[in-house]
Amino acid sequence: MSEPLLSIRGLRAKVEGEDGEILRGVDLDLERGEVHALMGPNGSGKSTLAKVIAGHPAYEVTAGEILFEGEDVLELEPDERSRAGIFLAFQYPAEIPGVSIANFLRTAVNSRLDEGEEMDVFGFQRTLTEKMEMLKMDPGFATRYVNDGFSGGEKKRNEILQMAVLRPALGVLDETDSGLDIDALKVVARGVNRLSEADEALGVLLITHYKRILNYIQPDVVHVMMAGRIAESGGASLADKLEAEGYDWLQQPATV
């Protein structure tokens, strides 16, 4: 267990087919069991980093590496990264009409098993029901079509539900708090905390604009991203400073 859970080195990336890098040399280490908050102004590259970690095809990595449990994942397809233990909670989850959450999640769970193996249907149902109770979700939710006609809050809760069922080693939460009212935020935060308690090795990279969610999920490390780089890292108190003073005090890295 010497290597970090996630180690990003000199990562540079751009939108495929376009000029101009969005990530301009990101360095970040996240150890097992740690919660890191990634903050920063709009357009600083936070969400791009999340998508690049998960392997979004629209982005091209031009330099650097992403090591997950010591292995370079840049050559892996998104589904291979998922099965390896990386989970991305989407800021804007896609809608899949006609596919129920239960069916979708069962397929996702089965994709992690060896060929020909299938998870016991009743066992799966029990797990799903239990996780839904934890997230205070109505049992009928499982039969709804994935994100189809969901409110913003329902979508975010659905993301955390998937994380709870799939049990990744690393959860990247991309603005899971945005658009949530305070009650929904508490439910989601408690869900994440419960997952951390259940799996002490779980690593979380929590991307957020606001300090609000950090009142409920205690970060071990806070990073600030500015113009495609980590401009500052520190303890939980860094978030307080950002809340009070904004981002202006941070030195803008030289623009390219």
Partner: peptide, 9 residues
């Protein structure tokens, strides 16, 4: 991408 990010090929 969404479905693949959950492990489906």
């Amino acid at each position: 991408f969404y479905l693949m990010s959950r492990g489906l090929d």
